[in-house]
Design a protein around this nucleic acid. Structure first.
Length: 204
DNA sequence: TGCCAGGCCCTCTTTAGGGCCTT
């Protein structure tokens, strides 16, 4: 055990909902194996629509930067290869999973990877954090960061460091049996099974 | 044309509502 790979993923998008026409504009993803980042993937994408000034300000990604960016279809094909069949992790995974599924669906791909959510896990593991935004948790746990926020690869890397730290903190605080029968019973229904699988894989 | 999210979790709960988090 311990020889497992997780793909941590983050999207920047034109807005909050693919069902309202929003598209992805940048993806960042890292592979985590043996408690370290072993590979990285990043690309801008051209959504063929104009970014709002809010999104330009929020991400630092401008309309001008996207005019020469590759088509979303081409990036999704590469992303699919990158994440392969690995487990996926994202901060507030419901957001990234719905965009990944929506973009995959447009090119007749179907996601087979399971998602776990670092935000829902952090709420359980770090209940005393000021809040459970990625930025706050990175500061709270004094995790490695280059100071960039709201860009896909930077956020994916921070999420990866947060995920690795949570695994380590859980491992050091609880025995395997307690993890199985104690902490896991405190988790919400949806995350319990997924986090347990991840932890089981991470245990030596 | 103009509208514009939604899943999870908590609780003053389950015949529901509201906050958090993502862009």
């Amino acid at each position: 055990m311990g020889n497992y790979t997780v793909a941590v993923i983050d999207f920047e998008t034109t807005g909050l909902s693919p069902h309202c026409g929003d598209r992805t504009i940048e993806v960042g993803a890292v592979l985590v194996a043996n408690n370290r980042i072993v590979d990285r993937f990043q690309s801008l994408m051209n959504p063929k629509m104009k970014l709002s000034s809010f999104i330009e300000d929020y991400t630092g990604i401008t309309n001008g930067m996207l005019t020469k960016a590759p088509d979303i279809t081409d990036v999704m094909k590469k992303l699919k290869k990158f994440i392969s069949t690995h487990y996926l992790v994202a901060h507030n995974a419901s957001f990234d999973s719905k965009f990944l599924d929506a973009e995959f669906s447009r090119i007749q791909f179907k996601r087979i990877n399971e998602f776990a959510c670092s935000m829902l896990t952090a709420r359980r593991v770090y209940p005393d954090a000021p809040n459970h935004k990625l930025e706050t948790l990175v500061r709270y746990k004094q995790l490695k960061t280059d100071g960039v926020h709201h860009r896909a690869l930077a956020d994916a890397e921070m999420t990866a460091h947060l995920w690795m730290r949570m695994i380590e903190d859980i491992k050091s605080a609880y025995s395997r049996s307690v993890v199985s029968f104690g902490l896991m019973q405190q988790l919400g229904k949806t995350q319990k099974k997924k986090v347990h699988e991840f932890l089981a894989a991470a245990m030596p």
